[in-house]
Amino acid sequence: MSEKKTDGEILLDIRHLTHIFSFPKRVTVKAVNDVSFQIRRGEIFGLVGESGSGKSTIARCIMNIYRPCAGEIIYKGVNVCDLKQLRKNKRMLDTTRQLIFQDSSSSLNPRMKVCDIIEEPMRIQRTNPPRGSYRAEAEFQLYYVGMDASYLDKYPAELSGGQRQRVAIARALAMEPELLVADEPIASLDVSIQAQIVNLFRHLKKEHGFSFLFIAHDLSMVEFLCDRAGVMYKGELVETAPVKKLFENPQHPYTKRLLAAVPIPDPGRERARKGNRW
């Protein structure tokens, strides 16, 4: 993509992020509580935890969908929580950060064709298509995620779940982003399709140096895909470590519980550990 900086530079720095949801009658829920972590350029950072642990809230704070109550999110040196800086760098932020949702069947407009979906962000940002036309650009992005031009004029409903997710990824890639925030991108897909998407992510990272925030609850995929991972529990980040270390030597009791809960596709071993799980 554009000029590559050296690996290891910190792309996203989250410092003491706190987000509280408030409801009528002064009921509040602390969704994210004092979370800090960093994502380096060219790194896939996994965020795991059960539903309601605040993973998606972090993703939405990063994407400026929610305004965090406290803390800072520094993306490429810009504090995205600061409205002034946000306005000044809006274009850069809007193009280089992209979000991929879990359920592409509801996050893609069913009345738009695939080409329109992929072209839309380019049209909004009025980027000059390097490949001549927006359509050529859309075709290129589609090819990039492993689909051919014949899909350009189809509607999301005509695609399978995996293909829809690829279109969502292609749409995100069209802006040549540097950070992809993927909020449970594979949770609603079949195993064999999950593998395709995970392979695609790996490829994007290795060949093109994208950085990812990969939110998932499937630990085996996180182990396979991510470089580092953080474990969320009740709004707090209880453990952050390189994936290998996290899986081999978990420190926090919740991480241990999480790992113990992963089913192993082997009936012999699965039966052997019955009973002594908790």
């Binding site: 009528p24 009921v27 509040t28 829920v29 642990s53």
Partner: peptide
């Protein structure tokens, strides 16, 4: 909801 209890299933 009207009594101000946090609804479940909000996008946390």
């Amino acid at each position: 909801e009207n009594m101000g209890k946090a609804p479940e299933g909000i996008g946390l």
